[in-house]
Nucleic acid binder design. Structure first.
Length: 587
DNA sequence: CTAGGGTTAG
């Protein structure tokens, strides 16, 4: 019998009780248990030594009492085991007294259960249930693994079998769904919890709030925030951190600050949580361009003797990089180092990124060397920034070296990285190397995308091979890629420059048929062509279409037409165009 | 045990 009692005692935090009456009863039972503290520990120990006790215990309906009777057998072993090392007599007396107490309680429980059952007939046959089941752990693991469909169906199976998982398992599910953007399902689970239990906790609501923030729906997040209050759940620091972060990201610094101070006034405990909120605020200020405000938060942290950490230093370093003050950023990096914080991949990437953006690729490569020597492993982001920076600086061969480092370290770059190098070689007119990289990309299992093809088409055109460019345009269709306006603009532009009127018009026609939208570049290229060919009627017509299209028109089409009409000495036309051009300018 | 802060961006 005691084995049953103590199993339920240990798991009583997982007990699901729908009715108030049964909760009262549980409290009575718990009261009895408290007198058993002496032997509790030993039985607790036994419980954890015996795997068999981890099975589901079914306490439903009449089973409850039967179960107790069945377990009575086993309890003898338990108590005798216990007696080996403890005062023999005391325990036995204790058991006898408690036997009586508990039996009385259980009889009352039985009658209460019957009344509850008849009252809730059909609604709930899982009123009293121990929510301990190894399936719950499978649900958790599936959630962490991102297998939410499977997790949901297993959870549903459990519910159907009247086994209600504990609140933490529910939180795993809710959190997984929220991270996946499946907010409706998460909300549905929370509603179910409100109805059948276990009651949702702060963590569940925090997951929902974060989920809405990730969907960029701060209003919904704030709604959930008040729903939570309506259910009597007090938000904690995590709640506030999520909301402060979201408000900062939206640029609502004032609202974020208000929430920040509200949080501080409510809670006087200083510690790591305050550090996180302050770091979020500081980061928000830096990103919204308010360096002074950010530094004010930094100073406040130092004044309040909040122990700053690596992350807050990284935020400051990044903040100065954002305000184009790499010198000061570097100073803070050194300060951080002096204080004994070991820079991590974030610290180095921040500096590498800032240096690349300034075109200081040699310095960026130097930082790369330092980080590898310090044993910090460069990641995708490090390589991406360096390769991009080098390609912008036309140091394509050096960029290719970094691509090789990546491959040597079994990091397969995303298409963007390959595309940047292919584009770099193409722009330098090195079609061989561009094609070689594309071949390597395919060999590593990375599929070329529309950017790859546009870069290759550009390369072909640049090297004067229009027909090769055209066949690339056909080839991409085989891979299921649809040419976009950039592709057509490249090809139309090339055709125009070669004076291939027919090809250009054909391509333009194809563009329209494919449902692509011609942009200013398309119009400008064709306009140039018509002017070169002296087809002024078509040129005027096209120009009218461009102005009517609602596209933002720059000066180039005006200049092309005006130049042409100048040469034709049609100065009235030139003047008209000039007036029209003035009209398009912002006053 | 579950929830919260920092690096990139054709």
């Amino acid at each position: 019998m005691y084995s049953f009692i103590f199993k339920s005692y240990i798991f009583n935090s997982h007990l699901l009780l729908v009715s108030e009456e049964s909760q009262i009863l549980l409290r009575i039972l718990n009261g009895s248990f408290q007198t058993l503290d002496v032997i509790k520990e030993r039985i607790f120990h036994d419980l954890f030594c015996s795997k068999a006790n981890l099975d589901v215990i079914d306490m439903r309906q009449d089973n409850a009492v039967q179960k107790v009777n069945r377990d009575e057998q086993g309890s003898k072993d338990w108590s005798s085991k216990g007696n080996e090392s403890n005062q023999e007599g005391d325990s036995t007396v204790g058991f006898n007294v408690l036997d009586a107490m508990l039996k009385r309680s259980l009889d009352r429980l039985k009658s209460m259960r019957e009344r509850i059952s008849s009252a809730e007939a059909g609604i709930s046959n899982c009123t009293l249930e121990i929510n301990f089941n190894k399936d719950a752990y499978v649900v958790r693991a599936m959630c962490l693994d991102g297998k939410l469909g499977a997790a949901l169906s297993l959870w549903w199976d459990m519910i159907q079998n009247s086994i209600v998982p504990d609140v933490i398992t529910h939180n795993y599910l809710i959190n997984g769904l929220c991270k996946n953007g499946e907010l409706e399902k998460a909300e549905w689970i929370v509603r179910g919890m409100l109805y059948r239990g276990p009651s949702p906790t702060c963590a569940a609501y925090n997951s929902l709030i974060r989920g809405y923030c990730l969907m960029n729906d701060v209003d919904k997040a704030l709604n959930t925030f008040s729903t939570m209050a309506n259910h009597g759940i007090i938000p904690n620091r995590v709640t506030c951190n999520i909301l402060v972060h979201a408000l900062c990201k939206k640029g609502l610094l004032e609202q974020a600050k208000n929430l920040f101070y509200k949080l501080l006034s409510k809670n006087h405990v200083r510690g790591s949580s305050d550090l996180i909120t302050s770091t979020i605020m500081m980061d928000g200020c830096f990103k919204n361009g308010d360096t002074d405000q950010a530094l004010a938060f930094w100073e406040r942290m130092l004044k309040e003797r909040i122990q700053v950490d690596k992350v807050s230093y990284n935020v400051v370093v990044h903040g100065f990089c954002l305000s184009h003050d790499v010198g000061t950023a570097y100073k803070y990096s050194c300060e951080m180092l002096k204080l004994g914080f070991i820079p991590d991949v974030y610290s180095y990437n921040t500096l590498v990124g800032a240096l690349c953006r300034q075109g200081k690729t040699s310095d960026a490569c130097y930082i790369y060397d330092v980080m590898t020597r310090m044993g910090v492993i460069p990641d995708q982001i490090t390589y991406k920034m360096i390769i991009h920076g080098l390609c912008i600086n036309k140091e394509i061969d050096r960029a290719t070296c970094f691509l090789d480092y990546m491959l040597e370290n079994s990091i397969i770059p995303e298409p963007l990285v390959w595309n940047v190098i292919i584009d770099g070689y193409g722009r330098c007119g090195d079609i061989q190397k561009a094609s070689y990289i594309r071949g390597k990309m395919v060999a590593f299992g990375v599929l070329p995308n529309i950017y790859t093809y546009n870069a290759l088409i550009y390369a072909k055109i640049k090297s004067g091979n229009f027909s090769a460019a055209q066949s690339l345009g056909k080839e991409m269709l085989l891979y299921g890629l649809t040419p976009d306006s950039v592709t057509y603009n490249l090809l139309i532009g090339a055709a125009c420059n070669l004076g291939l009127l027919h090809s250009a018009l054909q391509l333009h026609d194809e563009l329209l048929r494919k449902g692509c939208h011609p942009d200013v570049i398309t119009y400008t290229e064709l306009l140039k062509l018509f002017c070169l060919q002296g087809m002024m009627r078509e040129a005027d017509k096209l120009f009218g279409k461009l102005l009517a299209s609602g596209l933002a028109v720059d000066h180039v089409p005006f200049l092309i037409l005006m130049k042409r009409y100048c040469r034709m000495r049609e100065y009235n036309k030139v003047y008209d165009l000039y007036q029209q051009w003035l009209m398009t300018m912002p006053r």
